[in-house]
C-alpha cells in the first residue's frame, strides 16, 4: 500500500530534495538565498537547518559562478543541485551551461559525468517586474547534452526532482512558479514513471492538446470547457522537454488527427515549432488539420498589467481547437 500526502508543488519539491539529500550525502543544494531564507519561493526551506552549511549554502550573486563551481563540484564527485532565482537571471550562466556543462561528458569521451541539477522557477502570471516571468526553455532544449524537464503537479515535482538528481547527466528543472501553491496528492513510495515520459492526462478523441509546466492546468481547464461544449480533447502533459516523448505524442495524434501545442513561451522557434514539425514528419497522413501553436506573442514579456492578455488561457486554446476542427 502506498502512502499519500497532500501538498503543494513547492513543498513537494522541497520534500523531494530533502529525500535526495537524506539518501545520498554527495547531494548539495546551493544558490542565491537558499540557506536560512529557504529561497525566495521557500522551496529549500528547512534544508539548511537539517543538512548544515556544508551541504546547503548561499552563493554569491553570480550565476556563472554558481554553475561553473557546480561543474567543478560534480568533477569532485558531488551531485550539486543549484537554484537560479528567476528565469530571467539564468543568462549570465548561459555560457557555463551550454559550452561547459552540456559538453564536458562529450569532450572527455565519457570520462566525466555531469550530475548537476539546475532548478529554475519560470513562467508568468505572478504580477512581477521585468525578467521575473520568462520561459527560456527553448534556448536550452536546443543544446545537446542537457536534459530538460518541467513538472506540472505535486506528485511529479516530488519524483522528477529526485530522478533529476539521480541522473548522471545535467538536468534543468523548469518549475512552474505560478503553480507552486497548487496542491495535490503525492505518492511517497512509488515513482509514477521514468523522468522523460509524457503522460496522458485526459482521454479524448477529436484533438490532442499538448502542454507542459504551468500550461497543463490551463489545458485541462480548456478540455473541461470543451467537453461541456461537446468537443472531446485529449490532454498530454509532456513533462520532459528534452528528450521529448514522441511515441506518446504520435500515438495520440494518429488517433485524433489534430494537434495543438500550448506553452507560455513565444512560439517563434519554440518547443511547439519543433513538435509541430515532428508531427508533420511522422504523422502526415493521419492529420486532418495543420498543427496549431498557442503561446506567448513574439515580443519581450510585457509589463505585468498586460500579462493576462499575453499569456495563453483556456479561451485562446479553445479558439485554436475551433480552428483545427474547422478543417
Amino acid at each position: 500500500m502506498s502512502s499519500y500526502k497532500e501538498m503543494p508543488i513547492a513543498k513537494a519539491l522541497n520534500a523531494g530534495i530533502q529525500k535526495a539529500m537524506q539518501d545520498d550525502p554527495k547531494v548539495l543544494m546551493f544558490g542565491e538565498d537558499v540557506a536560512e531564507l529557504g529561497g525566495v519561493f521557500r522551496v529549500t526551506e528547512g534544508l539548511h537547518k537539517e543538512f548544515g552549511q556544508d551541504r546547503v549554502f548561499n552563493s554569491p550573486i553570480a550565476e556563472s559562478g554558481i554553475i561553473g563551481t557546480a561543474i567543478g563540484l560534480a568533477m569532485r564527485g558531488y551531485r550539486p543541485v543549484t537554484e537560479i532565482q528567476f528565469d530571467g537571471f539564468v543568462f549570465p550562466a548561459f555560457n557555463q551551461i551550454t559550452t561547459q556543462l552540456a559538453k564536458l561528458t562529450y569532450r572527455s569521451e565519457g570520462f566525466l559525468k555531469m550530475p548537476v541539477v539546475i532548478r529554475i522557477p519560470y513562467g508568468g502570471a505572478i504580477g512581477a517586474v521585468e525578467h521575473h516571468s520568462e520561459s527560456p526553455e527553448a534556448y536550452f532544449a536546443h543544446t545537446a547534452g542537457l536534459r530538460i524537464v518541467s513538472p506540472s503537479n505535486p506528485n511529479d515535482a516530488y519524483w522528477m526532482i529526485q530522478q533529476a538528481i539521480k541522473s548522471d547527466d545535467p538536468v534543468i528543472v523548469f518549475e512552474p512558479k505560478r503553480r507552486y501553491w497548487q496542491k495535490g496528492p503525492v505518492n511517497l513510495d512509488t515513482p509514477p514513471m521514468p523522468l522523460h515520459n509524457a503522460r496522458l492526462m485526459r482521454e479524448g478523441s477529436q484533438v490532442t492538446l499538448l502542454a507542459y509546466g504551468p500550461m497543463v492546468t490551463t489545458a485541462l481547464q480548456a478540455a473541461e470547457i470543451g467537453a461541456d461544449e461537446g468537443i472531446s480533447i485529449e490532454v498530454i502533459d509532456l513533462r520532459s522537454l528534452s528528450p521529448i516523448d514522441y511515441p506518446t505524442i504520435l500515438a495520440s495524434v494518429m488517433k485524433t488527427g489534430r494537434a495543438i501545442v500550448a506553452h507560455e513561451a513565444p512560439t517563434n522557434v519554440s518547443l511547439s515549432s519543433e513538435i509541430a514539425a515532428r508531427i508533420a514528419e511522422h504523422a502526415f497522413y493521419h492529420l486532418e488539420a495543420p498543427v496549431i501553436r498557442v503561446g506567448g506573442f513574439d515580443t519581450p514579456y510585457p509589463p505585468a498589467k498586460l500579462e493576462e492578455t499575453y499569456l495563453p488561457d483556456a479561451d485562446r486554446i479553445l479558439e485554436a481547437v475551433d480552428r483545427v476542427l474547422a478543417y
Binding site: 556563472s64 561553473g68 563551481t69 557546480a70 563540484l73 569532485r76 558531488y78 557555463q96 559550452t99
Partner: peptide, 18 residues
C-alpha cells in the same frame, strides 16, 4: 572558452574542502 575552467577549478577546490 577562456576562463571557463577556472570556475570548475574553484568548484573542485570547494569540493576538496567539503
Amino acid at each position: 572558452v577562456l576562463a571557463s575552467q577556472v570556475l570548475h577549478a574553484v568548484g573542485y577546490a570547494m569540493g576538496v574542502k567539503f
